[in-house]
Computed example of a mutant assay.
Amino acid sequence: MDIIIAYIPAIGWGVMPILAYMTKASLQERLTGTAIGAVLFALGLYIIHPASIALLPFVVSFISGIFWAAGQLLYFYSFQKISASIAIPVICSLQLIGTTLFATLILSEWITGYQYVMGVGSLLCILAGVLLTSYQVKSAELSMSFPVPIILMLVCSGLALSSYIVINQHFHISALSVILPQSLGMLCSALAMNLKGKHRLGFIPVLRNLSTGLVWSIASLALFMFSGLNGMAASLPISQASIAIACVGSIIIFKEKKSPQEWIAILVGITVLMIGVGMISLLKP
Results as ranks from 00 to 15, higher is better:
Ala128Ile: 11
Val206Asp: 00
Leu184Pro: 05
Ala175Thr: 11
Leu176Trp: 11
Val166Cys: 07
Gly121Ser: 07
Pro149Tyr: 03
Gly129Arg: 07
Ala140Met: 08
Val148Glu: 01
Phe171Met: 14
Gly119Val: 03
Ile165Arg: 07
Gln136Pro: 00
Ile151Cys: 04
Ser145Asn: 04
Ile179Gly: 02
Ala128Trp: 00
Lys196Asp: 07
Leu159Gln: 02
Ala190Trp: 07
Val130Phe: 03
Tyr164Ser: 09
Met153Pro: 01
Gly129Asp: 09
Phe171Glu: 13
Pro149Phe: 06
Ser183Arg: 01
Leu195Ser: 03
Ile167Leu: 15
Leu154Glu: 08
Ile126Leu: 13
Leu142Tyr: 10
Gln169His: 14
Ser145Val: 00
Val120Asn: 01
Cys125Gln: 02
Ser145Arg: 08
Val120Ala: 09
Leu176Lys: 10
Ile150Tyr: 05
Lys198Gly: 12
Leu187Asp: 02
Leu154Gly: 08
His170Glu: 13
His199Pro: 00
Cys125Trp: 04
Ser122Gly: 15
Val148His: 02
Ser162Cys: 01
Gly121Thr: 06
Ile150Trp: 02
Met193Arg: 02
Cys156Arg: 01
Leu207Ala: 13
Ser139Leu: 14
Met144Pro: 00
Val155Trp: 08
Ile165Phe: 13
Val120Ile: 15
Lys198Cys: 05
Leu180Gln: 03
Gly158Trp: 10
Ile204Asp: 01
Val166Tyr: 15
Gly121Tyr: 04
His172Ala: 15
Gly197Met: 09
Ile167Arg: 06
Lys138Val: 11
Phe203His: 04
Ser162Leu: 01
Leu161Arg: 11
Ser139Asn: 14
Gly197Leu: 00
Met153Phe: 06
Gly121Met: 03
Cys125Pro: 01
Ser162His: 06
Val130Leu: 02
Lys138Gly: 03
Leu142Trp: 11
Ile165His: 10
Lys198Met: 08
Leu124Tyr: 01
Val206Met: 05
Phe203Arg: 12
Tyr164Cys: 13
Gly119Gln: 02
Gly121Gln: 03
Pro149Asp: 02
Ala192Pro: 00
Met144Ser: 10
Leu127Pro: 05
Leu132Gln: 04
Leu123Tyr: 06
Ile165Trp: 09
Leu180Lys: 05
Ser157Arg: 07
Gly119Phe: 03
His170Val: 04
Ser163Cys: 14
Ile165Tyr: 11
Leu184Ile: 13
Pro181Met: 09
His170Asp: 12
Gln169Leu: 10
Met186Pro: 07
Leu123Asp: 05
Ser174Trp: 02
Ile179Phe: 03
Ser189Glu: 07
Lys198Trp: 03
Thr133Gln: 12
Leu176Arg: 09
Ser183His: 04
Leu154Tyr: 07
Ser183Gln: 04
Gly185Leu: 06
Met193Pro: 03
Lys198Asp: 12
Ile167Cys: 12
Leu154Ala: 07
Leu131Cys: 11
Ser122Trp: 02
Ser174Met: 10
Val148Phe: 12
Leu161Tyr: 12
Gln136Val: 09
Ser189Pro: 08
Glu141Leu: 06
Ser174Gly: 13
Asn168Gln: 14
Gln136Ser: 12
Leu161Glu: 12
Glu141His: 06
Ile173Gln: 08
Ser143Asp: 13
Gly119Met: 00
Ser143Arg: 15
Leu184Ser: 06
Leu131Thr: 06
Leu184Val: 11
Leu152Gln: 02
Val155Gly: 01
Pro147Tyr: 06
Tyr135Glu: 09
Leu180Trp: 07
Met144Cys: 01
Leu154Lys: 09
Arg200His: 13
Ile126Thr: 08
Val206Gln: 00
Leu152Gly: 10
Leu180Asn: 05
Ile167Val: 15
Pro149Asn: 03
Asn168Pro: 11
Leu161Cys: 10
